[in-house]
Design a protein around this nucleic acid. Structure first.
Lengths: 275, 275
DNA sequence: AAGTGGTCTAGACCACGTA
DNA sequence: ACGTGGTCTAGACCACTTC
């Protein structure tokens, strides 16, 4: 019983797109055309089975395409919902930069988030481990030397936002013990260090993107189809000494980053950030 | 006939992970443990059916998890292959920056790629269109004003690398006609403009990540599970005048970006970039 | 020709969410 | 209780690649 619905092909002579792709394409354009606005619900699988005359597996294959594109999210018992993003912009060229922050400010994250009218919240954890070969090289300490790992998971309005792990060389923590507090350093660790004479005057930033590992997906509560942004910042003192290395994993759907370069006087004062 | 193989559960009393997830988890740890090194082939679906005692659909569901994680790629008739990346690093704080490039250099892309011992290659296309509301605002021209769109698709060793679209206001192109050449501007458009008195002294960069649209996936030849990096650079002259806006879409699996901030004298001269 | 993945069907039972 | 998605089976034919 392999009765086949007539399929639409883009070009005469071309083999038609497989049914599940046609379903994906149809639903995608329905979404992008606004027939299913962000936050709305798609028709149920059973309805789509009727509409497309396909088996359930085929309909699910089509919807799966849209899931991996990050367009929709399924929820058991509740149907498929069109994704809605609210994007938060991080100004990396000013973030944590002592030239731009004032002494009375708190840490950069809480600052930025509160400035956007949202409620920040953080969880901390501290560990002492042996440096990996790469970490040792980056922090310019001997192989297998001790480093202090300061973990931080951040939330905005109770939505998991990013996970962060900062590596400090042991010598720095010995001289600046609050770094190993499992709680918050209210003024921000960068400022705390600066107040004690360890000023970071230069940063090296690295950015990459990839799909989350299962662990990251769980911690950030993201489903398939949402990539993460990976940010690695190394901070240096004026003596060319690296004092910390911070790895941050951001939800890719909720975050954007900006840098201003060159003669900043030539830039408009307030960037207007459209979606 | 719903004979079920006994399933492993993480915790007593926990409901066991679904079979397809167990398959994904097993294969994932086989890959990350190096039992299937990058570039090698996984066992065929039929073999996995025997090994896990599952139906073909279940095995495929498990492999599909790894595909959307970007770990493996399927190829009809050839089996599943473990992904292998070769990452290219773009130094965005120096890229196109006139302070760092010498007059005899070519365009930044070809430069950087050749410097890495690879073979660059580019395709160009030019269009004239009406500015969208957002483009008009960013380029500070009147709504509906004309802009010139300069498209460029870039390859490294014949692998599609990035697609780029630069918007120039019409007035700029009239004064600098080579911008509308459908071919290459060998010295780079930024230098060409600078030589004619239009110096970009400041840049505003925006970075984001997301899954590719179907068009982008086709142009960049990427399958599911590979995100893209989106880069928007706006260039300004010393008169606070925006002269161009460049949108670049990178394959996320092949690219990384770096920025150096602050007192660059405090940074190590040569960053060692480990994977 | 043989083997591999790609697509599709038809039907089953389970788990979750809402009412 | 009912509807929704989640998981799974068993088997079919097709298209591509390799030998």
């Amino acid at each position: 019983m392999y009765e086949q619905v007539a399929r639409v092909s883009d070009d005469v002579g071309m083999s038609p797109a497989p049914l599940y792709r046609q379903i994906a394409d149809t639903m995608r354009s329905d979404i992008t055309a606004g027939r299913f606005p962000p936050g709305s619900k798609l028709p149920s699988e059973r309805e789509l089975i009727d509409r497309f005359g396909a088996a359930r597996g085929t309909v699910r294959a089509g919807l799966n395409v849209l899931i991996t594109e990050g367009l929709i999210t399924p929820a058991q018992g509740r149907g498929y919902q069109v994704q809605q993003h609210e994007v938060f912009t991080l100004d990396a060229s000013r973030h944590e930069n002592l030239l731009f922050s004032r002494p009375e400010d708190g840490d950069s994250f809480s600052n930025d988030v509160r400035h956007a009218g949202r409620a920040p919240h953080q969880e901390f954890r501290v560990e002492v481990t042996e440096a990996s070969a790469e970490a040792a090289q980056r922090l310019q300490i001997e192989d297998g030397g001790r480093i202090v790992l300061r973990y931080c998971r951040r939330f905005v309005d109770d939505t998991p936002w990013s996970i962060q792990a900062t590596q400090y060389p042991q010598w720095l923590v010995s001289e600046n013990p609050r770094l190993s507090d499992p709680g918050d350093v209210v003024e921000g660790t960068t400022r705390y260090l600066a107040d004690r004479g360890v000023k970071q005057v230069a940063f090296h930033d690295e950015w990459a993107t990839r799909m989350p590992t299962p662990d990251e997906a769980r911690e950030l509560q993201i489903g398939p189809g949402i990539p993460v942004l990976v940010w690695v910042r190394t901070g240096y003192t004026s003596e060319k000494r690296p004092v910390r290395r911070t790895v941050t994993i951001f939800r890719g759907d909720l975050n954007r980053v900006t840098y201003d370069l060159g003669d900043t006087d030539a830039l408009p004062t307030e960037e207007v950030n459209a979606a």
